[in-house]
Amino acid sequence: MGLDFSVVPGFFDVIMQGVFWTIAITVAAAVLSFFGGIFFAVIALYAPRVISWPMKGFEWLFMGTPLLLQLFLIYFGLIQIGIDLPAFVAGSLGLGLHFAVYNSELIQTSILAVDKGQMEAARTLGLSRGQSLRYIVIPQAVRDVIPPIGNNMIALLKDSALVSVIGVTELTLSAQLAIGRTYRPFEFYAVAAVCYYIINLGMEAVLRRLERRVQASR
C-alpha cells in the first residue's frame, strides 16, 4: 500500500477545525502565560514571604513535572474536588500556567536588570511603588524580554499537541480522527506537520513585527 494523498481533501474541514483550535488554544495559553508570567514575577520579587513562598512551591510543581501529567491533573484530577473544567479551558490553563512559570523566570531577571534610577525617578515624582512598577519598570522589563518569551511561545505552540490527550480536537487529534477513518497515518500526520509549520511561520512573523515595534521605542 503506497502513499495516497488524494484522501486528504475529503477531510479538509476536519483539518481546518484542528488548525482553528490549535491557534485558539495557543493564543489563549500564550496570553495567560504572558500576564501570568508578569504576575508571578512581581509576586516573586515584591510580595511578602507568606505569599511568595507558596508560589515558589507552585513554580517547582510546574517546572519539575511533565506537562502531560499537569494536564491530566487539571482535567481529570480536579473533577474529584468538584472542579469540572471543559477540555479547552483545562488545556489552556495547563499550557498557560506551565509557560507562565518559565516566562516569570525571564521577566524576574529582566525586572532586576532595569536601572534602579528608573524606580527612583518615578517614586520621586510621587508615583507609588505599584504605579512605578506598572508604568515604568515592567514595560521596560517586558520590552527587553520579548525575544526569549517569543521562543517560549513557539515551544508552547508545539506543546499544544499534548492537549489532544484530554480531548481538545486541535490539529493532532483532528489528524488522528481522520486517520481512524482512513487508516492513512503518514498522509494525515504529514499534513498536520505542514500545518504546524505554517502556523509557526505566521507566529514568528508576528513576533518579529512586535520586536521591531518595541525596538523602535528604545
Binding site: D115, G117, Q118, A121, A122, R218
Partner: peptide, 9 residues
C-alpha cells in the same frame, strides 16, 4: 539626577 533617569520607553 546625575544620570537624568528619563523613562526610555
Amino acid at each position: 539626577f546625575q544620570h537624568f533617569n528619563l523613562f526610555p520607553h
